[in-house]
Amino acid sequence: MVEALKTAIAERLADLEMVIGWEMGFDALHATPLFIREEGDLHRLTLGPLAVHNLATYLPGLKGKKVGVVVKGCDSRSVIQLANEGLIKREDITVFGLCCDGVISHRKLREALPADLGFVEQATWHSDRLQAVVAGHAVEVRLQDILADKCISCRYPNALAADVLVGAARTPAPQPVPCQDAFDALPQAEKLAFWEATMARCIRCYACRNACPLCVCRDHCIATTRDPLWLGQENSPAENFMFQMIHVLHLAGRCTECGECERSCPVDIPLLLLRRSMNRVTEELFDYQAGTTPGQTPPLLTFQVEEARINERGW
């Protein structure tokens, strides 16, 4: 798959300022974004279960430039959503789409290994399992056990609206996410108690916001402005939770569930619990899944006198 992708990129690189992909990072278990500007960079390109980053996040910042981007199924939805909102020009972007078998969750991997990730000396992939040497011991982990939650529930493993699609198309087999079901079943008071406790951990680093491909306000984010003053800078569970509520609502009808927010959180806050609930509501109310249909208007970015599924007057 990676060879086919390299060929496809090589063919188009001349017309593009750069192509964003992944390369191996600082250790055997981390990939990192790669900015391919010339053919000489191509050999560094890598794919596979470590290619976790949603590279579409870079696109709004590169608006106006002709760039290529390598996307998994989930990432491709971000590209479509950004284009549908006019935040990028679709014609400026060349989308190299993958048919994705899923990526890992580093948190789950960490929990599966006997020692900290830093002690991994060597790691090799054998189809659906990882063999690693950790502090001198050989360990084997099944990919299935460390798959990211979003890959378990993935409905779109094959990149949508790709200009080039590599790999063999996979039939989606979405499963419910166990932690979400467990959380949804909790009584309201316990949910609140959970968030109060969890949000006490948040250090308001805004990594979740910065990683989100659809958070485009950047310097103007309402979380850090004085006028209007929505949030104080005080780091307390209430304010931290308020920030999350704002993030979730600003992403209503926009969030593609790429999971970058949760992945980037340094203190492992399960942020997708909120995103998934909100996405379910938007799907129920508006029959809408963000970033699945090019050219579609997001439900909250239009004015409609009457919504098909909201009965506002009973006669």
């Binding site: 306000c217 103007h220 984010c221 402005t225 006028d227 209007p228 003053l229 929505w230």
Partner: peptide, 16 residues
């Protein structure tokens, strides 16, 4: 999202 447009006499700050 970032409150750049405000309704006079009903600004975010007034409502907050």
């Amino acid at each position: 999202p970032q409150g750049a447009i405000q309704l006079e006499h009903f600004t975010d700050n007034q409502i907050l």
